[in-house]
């Protein structure tokens, strides 16, 4: 177990492993997304209240969930990097932040588009989820700004790891405080907890989309970490050998 862990942590090994892993994540991911898109848009029945407008959940829910997942990756990566001084974990943090920000932005965008027919406005402060997502986006911006403000990579890694750990505690507080706040103002929420059970024809495409987006996220992340590792190790022997090796050699 530990040897596996250490092997995984070694940059050249991860670099090779990720190359093998990416198609195994990306292809099933894309297939699931294709299945989910078709079934979600054409097969699933209309929602009895929201009509066709509800169909945006097939993008909104996966992106919203992954935006939080990415923050978790950032914080856990930062924690591992700080405690066990594992460089790969810091590289994951650096790679996942823009990805997480992009997913957060997509979640906000789809939420806003969804809100248009539901509320009649593009933005509704009363929705706790959208508001927490907006704060999450700002947290990502802060993280990326701190990273880019520090020239020394090792220092940037550690400083941003501390910020991500402080932020992850805060994400929980943001969630509950925003929920409390919107309950004061009779907030309207798009997704109600404990509503009537979903029709399987609606539910299965959603599950497929969530899984598909997760796999795609994994593939994108692996690709980004690979690039990040390559850049960070640009002075090392294995990268030089890799670059100088004849074309086609991995």
């Amino acid at each position: 177990m530990w040897t596996f862990f250490h092997k995984l942590a070694s940059p050249p090994h991860f670099y090779r492993l990720a190359a093998i892993l990416i198609p195994w994540l990306a292809i099933p991911g894309l297939l699931l997304i294709a299945y989910g898109t078709y079934n979600g848009l054409f097969v699933a029945p209309e929602d009895y209240q929201q009509g066709d407008a509800f169909r945006i959940i097939y993008v909104h829910v996966p992106t919203a969930y992954l935006s939080m997942m990415a923050y978790m990756f950032m914080a856990v990566g930062g924690g591992i990097g700080l405690i066990w001084r594992m460089k790969l974990a810091h590289a994951v943090g650096a790679a996942v932040a823009p990805l997480g920000a992009a997913f957060t932005f997509l979640a906000l965008l789809t939420g806003s588009i969804w809100g248009r027919p539901m509320w009649g406005t593009w933005w509704e402060w009363g929705d706790p989820r959208l508001t927490s997502q907006l704060i999450l986006l700002f947290l990502y911006f802060g993280y990326m700004a701190l990273r880019s403000a520090i020239d020394d990579t090792a220092k940037a890694d550690k400083a941003s790891a501390v910020l991500a750990l402080v932020g992850v505690v805060n994400v929980v507080i943001v969630h509950y405080s925003v929920e409390w706040w919107s309950s004061l103002h009779q907030g309207q929420t798009l997704l109600k907890k404990g509503g009537p059970a979903m029709d399987p024809a609606m539910l299965y495409p959603l599950l497929a989309m969530i899984l598909g987006f997760t796999l795609l996220f994994g593939a994108l992340l692996a690709r980004r970490v690979r690039t990040e590792v390559l850049f960070r190790e640009r002075r090392s022997r294995w990268v030089r050998e890799l670059v100088l090796a004849p074309i086609g050699g991995r």
Partner: peptide
Amino acid sequence: LLSLLILPLAMPVLLLGAN
């Protein structure tokens, strides 16, 4: 940069306090 880092962290405090 400090504002950018702290403001999102401080939002729950503002929200709780002002409300």
